[in-house]
């Protein structure tokens, strides 16, 4: 394989984007902080929630859809988990199961409306975004759900809620990062090794042709959104654990970050082309970029402008094709 063929592969280009950000980090290493593993461990912790959302978003975007509700589902899941565990005294594992099913149901509801009534995913998930945010505020009564409100001490709260905010492998990897990695692997298997995965690519490539070929288009769309909701619920559990509370206003706008990560990776918004491996690289690109800007204490205004410029650059870079 020559260089040009390599350059044609989206995966190679996504790796190049990651490498470029890495070079940027090596240039602006903030007194060597970029060369120490804890910096990267913390970066991987910080992007885990976004990464989980991006993993769920990838199959949606592969069907040429979009899910704007994931940020709100994170909030409602965080609130529900905190409520169940702190005030309901429910076993955390059981609570996680209930919350995950809740996310699956909310996502599935979006998917069902999109598939059954053929409404634009943008509109349906926009409605779900508002609905789920309202649900989060309703469940929480507009206040953060904390152990303090229940009269528990933080140590009790740590045992109950923050089991996910720990580290593995001798303190080298955050548990939430491991969950994100597991989710990415599961999504990869789902997309590349199952019938549903083949159907997802078929629906995204050409829904009419897929239907004629006997692909159950409606069911495929339903499951894609349900899975996205499930990932968002798991992200919500991770968010609640890291914040040690259920905040109804948390994860505002996270859906846009998740979509940006998928697109930066190289998955096409037009559907049918891309994959979760690319998404992981997109997550790393944005995560590292934010970390480098933060390490160097770049002021907010410059940070936003730099992020915008670099995102556009990365996308153009992704798109580049030789003549």
């Amino acid at each position: 394989m020559n260089l040009r063929e390599l350059w044609d592969r989206p995966l190679a280009r996504a790796w190049m984007a990651v490498a470029l950000v890495g070079v940027l980090g090596c240039c602006f290493h903030a007194d060597g902080a970029f060369f120490r593993w804890p910096t990267h461990r913390d970066m991987l912790r910080q992007v885990a929630v976004y990464g989980l959302l991006a993993c769920g978003m990838t199959p949606v975007i592969l069907t040429a859809g979009i899910d704007l509700a994931v940020g709100s589902i994170v909030a409602v899941s965080a609130v529900a988990a905190a409520k169940l565990i702190i005030f309901g005294g429910v076993d955390p594992v059981l609570a996680a199961g209930v919350v995950s099913l809740g996310g699956l149901a909310l996502g599935g509801l979006s998917g069902a409306v999109i598939a059954k009534f053929r409404v634009q995913p943008f509109v349906v998930t926009l409605a779900m975004m508002v609905l789920a945010r309202g649900l989060a505020k309703q469940l929480s009564g507009g206040q953060k759900v904390t152990a303090y409100a229940a009269g528990l001490s933080p140590t009790e709260a740590t045992g109950l809620l923050t089991g996910l905010d720990t580290r593995l492998l001798g303190d080298q990897l955050a548990t939430v990062t491991a969950i994100m990695i597991a989710c990415a692997i599961f999504t990869w298997v789902l997309l590349r090794r199952t019938r549903l995965g083949r159907h997802i690519y078929a629906v995204g490539g050409n829904p009419e042709a897929a239907r004629l070929a006997g692909v159950p288009v409606g069911w495929t769309i339903f499951w894609v959104y349900a899975y996205c909701g499930l990932c968002a619920a798991i992200a919500g559990l991770c968010q609640a654990a890291q914040e040690t509370q259920g905040d109804p206003d948390t994860a505002m706008g996270y859906e846009l970050d998740a979509i940006a990560m998928v697109v930066i990776g190289g998955t096409s918004l037009m559907g049918g082309r891309g994959g979760v491996g690319l998404t992981v690289l997109g997550v790393l690109t944005i995560g590292w970029l934010q970390k480098i800007l933060s390490l160097n204490a770049v002021p907010e205004a410059s940070r936003l402008m730099a992020t915008g410029v670099i995102l556009i650059g990365a996308i153009l870079f992704q798109r580049r094709k030789h003549a």
């Binding site: 902080a33 804890p38 910080q46 890291q242 914040e243 390490l295 204490a297 002021p299 907010e300």
Partner: peptide, 23 residues
Amino acid sequence: VFVADMQWLEPNARREMESALAT
């Protein structure tokens, strides 16, 4: 020694503090 805008948000504050501690 370190100033950052965390936009009133706890997750952002945690991220910025990690950077402060790293540097």
